[in-house]
């Protein structure tokens, strides 16, 4: 927080005293002022971005989860499918975004597809590696208890993957916002991406930066909620950090 504050302060001082034009580099105070003046437009454009982010991410999450289970049960699939997904990750967004818009129009669909495209693979890898991280001895013990593969998956592999899942979630959720904005940038009726593009074309860097501020806030809120979700879903993580000795009982 302090580092962000210092950065903003330095920026403010530079923009005010260096004589640089506000149409090149506006001071943070001006950006904030303009953001407040244009807040209706900003909110209006943020809503489609949020919708695209969440819907796209939900799609990619469901697909990643389903496929991760399939890969876990049929290992050969991993070798067959992973190269395809790795290639999908190398596609430059600059090239693919306009194409997807060209194919699927200016509506919600291309945004969802692009968000899913950038977040799917990290989530898939996180889940598959999470299953693999299951302690071998837990699996051996469950087999000795008479548990089948499905039982072992539900009792051991799935919960073992949780830390990996949340690590993947934290990374992907930030990609998701960027993905949505990029898709809008390539063509949309409304959204933070197209808003930034229009503001730039009208020589209003202050409004571009205001939209950047909104998207940063959005990312932070989403990131924060994944952290919160992890705390709720994994209470043992925090409990482990405060071991109780033989004597203390709660």
């Amino acid at each position: 927080m302090i580092s962000v504050g210092l950065l903003l302060l330095a920026w403010e001082l530079y923009a005010t005293y260096s004589g640089i034009k506000p149409t090149i580099l506006p001071a943070p105070s001006r950006v904030f002022e303009q953001a407040m003046l244009n807040r209706e437009a900003l909110v209006d454009n943020a809503i489609p971005t949020i919708r695209a982010t969440l819907l796209g991410f939900a799609c990619s999450l469901s697909a990643a989860f389903a496929l991760s289970m399939l890969v876990d049960f049929f290992q050969p699939l991993r070798r067959a499918l992973f190269p395809v997904f790795i290639v999908s990750q190398t596609l430059p967004l600059v090239a693919i975004a306009p194409l997807v818009v060209l194919w699927f129009g200016f509506g919600l669909a291309p945004k969802i597809i692009l968000v899913a495209l950038v977040t799917f693979f990290p989530m898939l890898v996180a889940l598959v590696e999470g299953y693999e991280a299951t302690e071998a001895e837990i699996g051996q013990m469950l087999r000795a208890m008479g548990a089948g593969r499905w039982r072992i998956f539900m009792l051991a592999r799935l919960p073992s993957a949780l830390p990996y899942f949340f690590a993947g979630l934290r990374i992907s959720i930030t990609y998701a916002v960027v993905g949505a904005i990029f898709a809008e940038y390539a063509g949309a009726a409304k959204g933070l991406g197209i808003y930034m593009l229009n503001a730039k074309n009208n020589f209003r860097p202050d409004l571009v930066l205001a939209a950047v501020g909104v998207s940063a806030a959005l990312t932070l809120v989403l990131f924060g909620s994944t952290v919160l979700l992890q705390r709720l879903a994994m209470p043992w993580e925090r409990a482990g950090k405060e071991p109780v000795g033989m004597g203390s009982r709660r």
Binding site: E137, I138, L142, M145, G146
Partner: peptide
């Protein structure tokens, strides 16, 4: 097994019932 193989996400009570649950 060699190491205790307790499941970190299960409370002690639920770890000890694991074999019965599988049954």
């Amino acid at each position: 097994p060699q190491r205790d193989a307790l499941m970190p996400w299960r409370r002690i009570l639920d770890n000890t019932t694991l074999g019965l649950e599988v049954q």
